Every structure is written in structure tokens, then in C-alpha cells.
Simulated assay, not measured.
Amino acid sequence: MWRSISNAPSDRELELAVIDKDGTHSLVFPCVRVVGGWKNARTMERIDIHPTHWREWPHPTGRQQDID
């Protein structure tokens, strides 16, 4: 279930949705919320996005990975 971006947590990997001129899209990589924005959870590089919704990133192992 998608949730409003206003209450996205910063302690876990998230799947993000963005809306652009072509419609609504979910990102194909997990993201983590950081002060002032977002990072790609795999590379930890800051990304310039303005997501509208989030949901838990699905993990095949069924557990969350550590984010430092």
C-alpha cells in the first residue's frame, strides 16, 4: 500500500513513486530518506527527486538491510 511522502521514515529502504509529465512511476531501486532529500540506498549517492508516495522496499529475504 502506498503512503504519503510526508510521513516517510528515514530508518529503512523505501520504494518511491514520482509524478512527472508522463504520469506516475515507481523507482527501480531502493531509496533512503536523509536530511534535505533522498539517497539511492545501494550507492548512497544523493538523488534529485521529489517523490509523492512511498512503501516498504520488498526484500527477498524478508528482512530489512542495515543502512548507515
Rank of each mutant, 00 (worst) to 15 (best):
Val32Asn: 07
Cys31Asn: 11
Pro60Arg: 10
Pro58His: 01
Val28Ala: 11
Ser6Asn: 15
Pro60Asp: 13
Glu13Val: 06
Val18Gly: 10
Ser26Trp: 12
His53Gly: 05
Ile19His: 12
Pro9Val: 14
Asp11Met: 11
Ile5Thr: 03
Arg42Cys: 01
Arg46Thr: 09
Arg46Pro: 04
Trp38Gly: 06
Lys39Ser: 00
Pro58Arg: 06
Gln64Arg: 07
Thr61Gln: 08
Ile19Cys: 00
Cys31His: 13
Phe29Ala: 00
Asp22Gln: 11
Leu16Ile: 05
Ser4Phe: 06
Leu16Asp: 15
Thr24Leu: 15
Ser6Met: 04
Val35His: 10
Leu14Ala: 06
Gly62Ser: 03
His59Cys: 07
Asp66Gln: 09
Ala41Ser: 07
Arg33Phe: 10
His50Trp: 03
Lys39Phe: 09
Arg42Asp: 04
Gln65Ile: 09
Val18Ile: 15
Asp66Ile: 13
Pro60Gly: 11
Val18Glu: 10
Pro51Ala: 01
Trp54Leu: 02
Asp11Cys: 02
Ile19Glu: 12
Arg55Val: 12
Ala17Gln: 08
Ile5Glu: 04
Gln65Asp: 09
Gln65Arg: 01
Gly23Thr: 14
Asp48Leu: 04
Arg33Pro: 07
Glu15Pro: 07
Gln65Gly: 00
Asp20Pro: 08
His25Ser: 13
Cys31Tyr: 04
Glu45Trp: 08
Leu16Glu: 02
Val18Trp: 05
Asp20His: 15
Glu15Lys: 02
Lys21Phe: 06
Asp48Pro: 02
Arg33Glu: 12
Val32Pro: 00
His25Met: 10
Leu16Thr: 04
Met44Val: 01
Ile5Leu: 06
Asn7Asp: 13
Arg42Gly: 06
Leu16Trp: 05
Asn40Glu: 02
Arg33Ser: 03
Ile67Thr: 00
Leu27Ser: 01
Ala8Gly: 07
Ser6Asp: 15
Arg55Asp: 14
Thr24Pro: 08
Gly37Thr: 13
Gly37Arg: 12
Arg55Thr: 13
Ala8Ser: 02
Asp66Asn: 05
Thr24Arg: 15
Asn7Cys: 11
Leu27Asp: 13
Pro9Phe: 06
Glu13Tyr: 02
Ile19Gly: 10
Pro30Glu: 03
Asn7Arg: 07
Arg3Gln: 14
His53Ala: 06
Phe29Leu: 01
Ala8Pro: 03
Asp20Gln: 05
Glu13Ile: 03
Thr24Asp: 11
Ile47Ser: 09
Pro30His: 13
Leu14Ser: 08
Gly23Ile: 05
Arg33His: 07
Ala41Val: 12
Asn7Leu: 08
Arg63Met: 08
Met44Ala: 04
Arg55Phe: 12
Glu15Ala: 00
Asn40Pro: 02
Ile49Ser: 11
Ile19Lys: 14
Gln64Asp: 00
Arg3Ser: 14
Met44Phe: 02
Ala41His: 13
Ile47Gly: 10
Arg12Met: 15
Trp38Asp: 05
Trp38Lys: 12
Ser6Tyr: 06
Arg55Tyr: 12
Asp68Met: 03
Arg12Lys: 13
Arg55Met: 15
Phe29Lys: 00
Ile67Pro: 06
Glu15Ser: 14
Ile5Phe: 06
Met1Glu: 01
Leu27Gly: 12
Cys31Asp: 10
Val34Thr: 10
